[in-house]
Structures are given as structure tokens and as C-alpha cells.
Design a protein around this nucleic acid. Structure first.
Lengths: 330, 330
DNA sequence: TTGTACGCGTTATCAA
DNA sequence: TTGATAACGCGTACAA
């Protein structure tokens, strides 16, 4: 049992409430007793109990972040940006992963609520609108990132992001464009695939389902996609990847086989992670502004915690960044 | 204010304590009232308050993990393994990062203690033995990973890991072996550098400080190290990298310049992340068993929480995994 | 089998 | 300026 306000009170010969005020720098307290008590607190190594404080005030200074998966650097980037957005507001951010599992996501956000956290931010939710039918969802605000159907959410316009990249590739002369997926049937993946298919249709390019191969959202999936693409009777000239890590895997696989990017194949990523600019060749990619996503999500949470209800989903426009992993067809 | 045990009691016309017992599946309760109350609880969407429970029982079911940095996949791997080790013990793991900042590490573990968590696991601590002089450290066990000087810690023997890799390279005929660092002067980096230098000395290979170049612990740092190494008057034939991500960057930089690995340069990593086996070429690396590290750290925490004090730092032996990124000198 | 009473550490209100 | 008291939600010892 650690040092409490009562222990200090006894040592100082005052009432517990006096100690509380002295430590809170309350105005109505004499300078001497304040000094005495603050010294005593330091001496005894007193650390206030956020548990007790939470119970009486019915408020928490902890924001819970539930993340689909720690292995996706995009999510990890987002976490850092959420932490930065919260910095200085004397809130703390606690993160946990639900490992791409809907049950575990519910168990995790349930754990957040049991602990009466100030709110939850879920990145890559599988529950999605399911949160709307939570028994007492009014009690803890839940904000989603990358789930545009949910009313309290912040997302990137995946459809338009993919369209921008596809338009660019098609105008550069590419007609056979492969798509390496993430392999999980998320909301986000569906939107990106929809953008891919629509872009081809708009330009009257006949779709070819063999050009859609499955990755795993990581470098490994990209590497493994390469032999599949090379084995096709009609090879693609450009490869659109679900995200940057997949693109890095694809480029590595191609380079290892002796092919050159972008001379032999154009490769496009999604996210614009820090590595995208540094990689050789640097990646053409669709930028998702994780700083804005994080900042907006935190703001949304604050607004909800303050009782606002008329809030519309926020959609952020992604931006195509053209670098050296793509080239025009000669 | 969410639904409490009292709300249920009023609705059911019983005392709060009866509700408490009914929900805890206490033996001394009539089946009818139990059913009545459990139904009512579900209907009202009752979720017990871990805050109140924590306060009265003076126990917590939350383990805090403070991690140096989310960008290092090795740490992230570790987090997953800690989570797995805790699974089923009805504890929850909350993670937060201190961004390579000693002050923020102290603030974070302080926040853990304020919230009276069951214990803390710090990965890549910068405070290290500083925890021994915490005012009331007896109240919350703190376990460190990768800080072998601290009594309650689990680490890999970095020195021997590097030695194994160096011995292998030297026996394969390499004499000019570069070292790409992480760039932060951590305990771990010092040990690995010491192993590097000692291995050269043992074989009477004259050290050359120009072969030690700085990375950043990530892919980017590896890529940037390549031009520095290629610019040397006496180029290395092998490149030892602080970790796998650095090695991936180095290989990418070399491949992009038209060099082949391992024909032109041998490259060794450290960690044995999942990517190491999948990358092209697959990485020769020093394996750190994150599953064991996580499991042991959690066990250590349990032992400390149970009051044990006679505990020695645990050192795990790393293992050299030879794959295709290294070759003998002809 | 159920109800009453109390305590956990803190803050807020009211009285002194 | 300080002290006493109640309250937050839950668990438990004891009484009924």
C-alpha cells in the first residue's frame, strides 16, 4: 500500500482535506502549511492515486487507442501523431492491439470502458458501425480512423487516392496495371479496389482479374507477389500496391530477379511513410497525412467528450506524390 | 455517469451487496435473484467499474509497457509477444512510447504508477538503474528488457551474438568488415560495438574506424550508409548491420547501385524479424527470441508482484542464422 | 439467503 | 485558514 494523503495528514498533524488543498495549490491555504505539506509529500515519496481521483471526479486523463495491428507502419505512424496531438494536454495515451480480430477488438474497447477511460480511438476497426449499438455508448466516446461509414470518424478518401494514381499511370501509357492487395477484407481495401476497377472502366481498359494478386500488407506479401506476376502470360507494366511496405517488397523481389524499377516495371505505393522518400528508387505513392488524421481524431474525441453530437465524418483528401519508381511507357 | 450496482439494486428492490454477489457468481445466493439481477444487468448495459474495483482491492489488472520507440519492429515484435504471454490471465497490456527521451520515459512510468498499474515493463530503457532509487519503487514492480545491468531484467547477450556473426564472417575469409550503427548510444549498441571490436582484436585484424558508419536503426539509415561505404579508399567486403531493418536498407542501396548481395558484399543483420527470411536475398542474422524475452519478462513481473526479491538478471543466448546474404570470399 | 455498515484515496461542500 | 463530512462504485465482514 503506497503513501496516501492520510499518511501525510497524520505526520503533519492536519486533516486530510487540508493536505488535498495544499497539494492542489488551492488559494485558501496558508503559505506555511502549504510548504510543510509539500515538503512532507516529497519526503515520503507521495504519488497521488489517479484511481481514487477518477472515481470521485468521474473523469479520466487516459485516452485508449486500439490498433488493428502493430506491424503496419502506417498505424504506428498514426499512433505517434495521436500522442503528439495529445501532448501537453496532460492526457496520456495508452495503446493496445486487437490483432486483426473482431472479438479482441470488442474485448479491448470493453476493457477501455471498464477502466472508464476518457475515450477511445480505434485505428482500422473491424467493428465499425457496431459501436453505434453499444449499450451505453454515450458514456465513452469512440472515434474511428479509416472507417468513413461511422459518424464519428476521420478517414482518407481511398477511392480518390487510388484514382489519382491510376489516372497518372494510364496517362503515362500503362494499360496492364496489377494490384497487390492487403489480403484482409477491410473497408479500406474494398474502397481501394473499387477505385482501381472504376479507373480502368472509365478509360475503357478491360479488367483482368489475374492482375489482382494477394499480399499481406507487409514486405513479405510484396515479395511473394512478384513470382505470381512474372508467371502471367501477359505481364503487367505497372504494379499498384496496397501500401508502401508492399511496394518495397515488390521492388525487392523485382530487383533480386534482375529487373529494374522503373525501367522494367513501374511500382506505386500508398501511405508515403518516411521510407518512401528514402528507398531506392524512391517511391511514387499516395500520401496519407497521418499528422492531420491524428490531430483531427483527437479533436473529435474532445468535442464528443464535451457533449457535442452533431458531427459529420471527416474525409481528408490524399495526395499523389510522384517520385522515381514510376516512368512512362516508351 | 454510467450504470452502477446501485441502479440495479434499486430496480431489483434488493441491496447493492446482493447485486455484487449475484454478479460475482457467489455461492450464497438464490438462483432466482441471481437470474433476475443478471438479466437486469444485461438489460441496463451494466459494465463494472475497474476504477472502483481497483481502489477497494488495491490491485490492478493492467500491465503497462513503455517502449523506447514504435518504429523499431523488434520492439513491436516484443510487444506482441508480451501480449501473448499475458493472454488468458485476464490482465490487459497497455503500451505507450517515450520517444527515445529519458524525461518522457520517467513521466510515462510515473503515469503508470499514478494509475496504480500492476507493473511496468520497459523496453529499451534510458533510465536503467535509475529505477532502483525510485522513492517507493516497492509499490510497483518494474521489469526492463535489454538492460542487463538492472537486477530485474531480461536481455540477450549482445556481445556473444555479435561475436558469433563476426567469427563466421572472418572464417569465411572476410577481413574488412564494416559496422553500421543505430546512432543512439544505448547500452545495447555499446555492447554490440564492443563485440565487434573484440572479435577483430582476437584475430589480430587491425581496426579501422572509418568502417564504422552511423545509421538510424531503420531502413533509411541503411540506405544512407551505402554511399559512405562505397566512397572509402579500402572498401569492406562484409557489412555487419545493427539490426535487420538497417540490413534491408543496406541491401537495397547496394542493389540499386547494381551490386549483388552476397556476390559483391556480404550483409549481416540482427534480430531475425519475420522479414529476414522472406527478403531477397534472405538475411543472415543474429536471432533474438522475442517470444522468450516477452515470456520471461512477464514471468519476472508476476514473481515480483508476488513479493519475490531474490531475482537475478536473465541473459538469453542469441543464435546465428546463416542464410543467403553472406558468402565466403573466393 | 439477504441486508447493513464500512473502507479504499480523493475532492468538494459546508461549517467552524 | 482549517476541519469534519459526504460522496464516487465496489467488495466484504458481520448481522439478521
Amino acid at each position: 500500500m503506497s503513501v496516501s494523503i492520510k499518511d501525510i495528514a497524520k505526520r503533519a498533524g492536519v486533516a486530510p482535506s487540508t493536505v488535498s488543498r495544499a497539494l492542489a495549490n488551492h488559494p485558501r491555504i496558508s503559505p506555511e502549511t502549504r510548504q510543510l505539506i509539500q515538503n512532507l509529500a516529497k519526503e515520503l515519496g507521495y504519488v497521488p492515486s489517479a484511481v481514487a481521483r477518477s472515481l470521485v471526479s468521474n473523469r479520466s486523463t487516459t485516452i485508449g487507442v486500439a490498433v488493428n495491428d502493430f506491424l503496419n507502419p502506417f498505424y504506428v505512424d498514426l499512433i505517434s501523431n495521436i500522442e503528439e496531438a495529445v501532448q501537453g494536454e496532460d492526457y496520456h495515451v495508452f495503446v493496445s492491439s486487437f490483432h486483426r480480430n473482431r472479438e479482441r477488438e470488442l474485448s479491448l474497447t470493453g476493457a477501455f470502458f471498464e477502466r472508464r477511460l476518457a475515450g477511445a480511438i480505434v485505428v482500422g476497426s473491424l467493428v465499425d458501425n457496431g459501436y453505434l449499438s453499444w449499450p451505453n455508448r454515450a458514456d465513452m466516446p469512440v472515434v474511428l480512423i479509416s472507417c468513413p461509414a461511422y459518424p464519428f470518424s476521420v478517414s482518407v478518401d481511398n477511392y480518390r487516392g487510388v484514382s489519382a494514381a491510376m489516372t497518372y499511370l494510364i496517362e503515362a501509357g500503362h494499360r496492364r496495371i496489377a494490384f497487390v492487395t492487403q489480403g484482409h477484407h477491410t473497408n479500406t481495401e474494398q474502397q481501394r479496389l473499387a477505385g482501381y476497377r472504376a479507373s480502368l472502366a472509365e478509360r475503357n481498359i478491360p479488367p483482368d482479374e489475374t492482375l489482382i494478386v494477394h499480399g499481406d500488407g507487409g514486405i513479405t506479401g510484396g515479395i511473394k507477389a512478384v513470382p505470381q506476376l512474372l508467371a502471367l502470360p501477359h505481364r503487367p507494366t505497372a504494379i499498384f500496391c496496397y501500401n508502401d511496405m508492399t511496394a518495397i517488397g515488390v521492388i525487392n523481389g523485382l530487383q533480386h530477379q534482375g529487373y529494374k524499377v522503373p525501367q522494367d516495371f513501374s511500382v506505386v505505393g500508398f501511405d508515403d511513410l518516411g521510407i518512401a522518400a528514402a528507398y531506392s528508387p524512391s517511391l511514387t505513392t499516395v500520401r496519407q497525412p497521418t499528422d492531420q488524421l491524428g490531430q483531427f481524431a483527437v479533436n473529435l474525441l474532445y468535442h464528443l467528450a464535451a457533449g457535442q453530437t452533431h458531427i459529420a465524418p471527416q474525409i481528408i483528401e490524399p495526395e499523389l506524390i510522384v517520385r522515381q519508381s514510376t516512368a512512362a511507357i516508351c
